[in-house]
Amino acid sequence: MTVHSEPVQAPWDRAGAGSSVDVEHEPSLALHIEDLTVSYEYRPVLWDIDLDIPPGVLGAVVGPNGAGKSTLIKAILGMVPVAAGHIYVFGRPHHRQLSRIGYVPQRTSVDWDFPTTALDVVMMGLYGKLGWIRRPGKAERQKALEALEHVGMAPYAHRQISQLSGGQQQRVFLARALVQDADLYLMDEPMAGVDATTERHIIGLLKELRSRGKTVLVVHHDLQTVSQYFDWLVLLNVRIIAQGPMHEVYTLDNLRHTYGGQIRLLQGLAGALATDGDGEAKPGDGRSAGDGGAAALGR
């Protein structure tokens, strides 16, 4: 577990290195979060989060239902109102760095019956760089086609998106993030509900991104594969339970803390977590931190 060496920003010190002031802060870190608190209808979903992610790591965010994993990702992207705290991306306030962040939302967050093609969805990743009103042209089409090729989906470029399998839809979302050409990638359960082939494909892609110097942070649900796929681990249950290099953080003790002693041994893990979607918390879910009051932020 890495310990914070930073002098912590006092919550009342609004004029300090607040998100409205554009000063460099911890530029050597890909992601630096201080005191982040997000609440939903007076319940803390994230509580007093201090988080550091060095550049070039392939990190996983792991925790039980309602731990705030998706909310953490959304907070970094400025998608949810923040009750307190500061978020820095490559040393600058996050909302000024959105063009350097690529995002893969949960696959189930959109209606796949929307009348559009795989290629069109991938081109949406370029909308941010295009700016207002301008339409995507030949260059954008080409980039999107290359990204589809990269995820092995080129033959499906003109397929209507509802006619793709779950794994193929997920790869379309990944291709959309690829064309964003970001430095920091945030992905919300990209391997949930995909077939084994797609999972291998995705993990290969993540490792390739890391080898190109990108920083990748992934919400992951499978405790059995987490240590094999990732090199950095953030254990989250409303609070940060532990964070750091995989070999230091991936201990039974830490996992037990995160899941509230509910896990038996790794053997039983897969079964116990099979129902781990992002919906309501199971009634039997114990929690070690945050008094178990955190509801999953409704998507």
């Binding site: 959304k74 992207l77 400025g78 998608m79 909302h95 959105l98 063009s99 962040i101 995002y103 939302p105 967050s109 959109v110 209606d111 929307f114 559009t116 969805v121 949406m124 909308y127 941010g128 959309r176």
Partner: peptide, 15 residues
Amino acid sequence: KLVTFDPGFARSLGW
């Protein structure tokens, strides 16, 4: 189009 299909992604672009 993007706001209709995937408002979350649109927000992540700062729109």
